[in-house]
Amino acid sequence: MTNNASQTLGILFQLCQSLLVVALAPLLTGWVNQCRAWLQNRSGAGLLQPYRTLRKLFHKDAVLAYNASPLFRITPYILFGCMWLAAAIIPIIAIDLPFSPAADVIALVGVFALARVFISLAAMDIGTAFGSLGARREMLVSFLAEPALLMVFFTSSLISHSTQLPHIVGTFAHHEFVLYPSLAFAGLAFVIVLLAENARIPVDNPSTHLELTMIHEAMILEYSARHLALVEWASNLKLLAYISIGIALFVPYGIAEVGNWGVLPLAIAALLVKLALAGAGLALLEALLAKMRIFRAPEFLGTAFLLAVLGLLIHFLLGA
């Protein structure tokens, strides 16, 4: 196959993945919620509930506070753009995505940080007590979660000698199954980061109605209609992106190589199974854990950070 043709195919794969993630993201959230409902002995709202919510929100008239600035209005779009980009460049169905070299793992952490800074600023824009409270807590949670995530990436980068996601995934996918002790620590740290960054129990509760305990929800209280829809969709994409990172780093098996159309259906099927398992696992974790006080969260995330650094040190000690 010529180089040119494989490039075209790469772009096709990229497009395919971009559309797939943006379409699948609400479904994943629906699945997690459904699993949680089952675990709590409820019947649940169904897998498609997030789509219905989005549709409803898009149809509504937007209401904006009198003093909302342009920063407040543009933030949902920035958020959505960042999260879509993040979810689109993580290799989950095929390894060689042409967009991937634009942002390696450090830049990926940067994308999440960019979105977080914007949503925190937007939360402070109206000047309500809950908004700034949410912004402060979000930044508090993230200042420990972000370095922990970076350390997780560093561990896998050191093993694969690259910060490029395709390269990291390629290294792990093509190896015979090897258990890296450093990755075990990194995996544990990553789960904690995933829970914290996606506003999940035990750090935050996505379905809470009590404003005083909110983190993520407190920041978006003032959003309505299409703005809220985009923020919610971005949150769905973020959850998908984090789970994709987990899949890419720890269980990349079954991923397709570019230039091979035949394995694409298999790769997508494998991905769906992995996503479903991860979503169910997340729901189980949430059902088993209790939400902690806000000042216990830094300790929890500090543990993640230390675990990740330990993983890195173990890599240096054992060379694996």
Partner: peptide, 14 residues
């Protein structure tokens, strides 16, 4: 696909 309707009002603040 939808509309650009927008209203201004006082902040909701729960």
């Amino acid at each position: 696909f939808y509309h650009g309707r927008l209203r201004r009002g006082p902040a909701w603040n729960c």
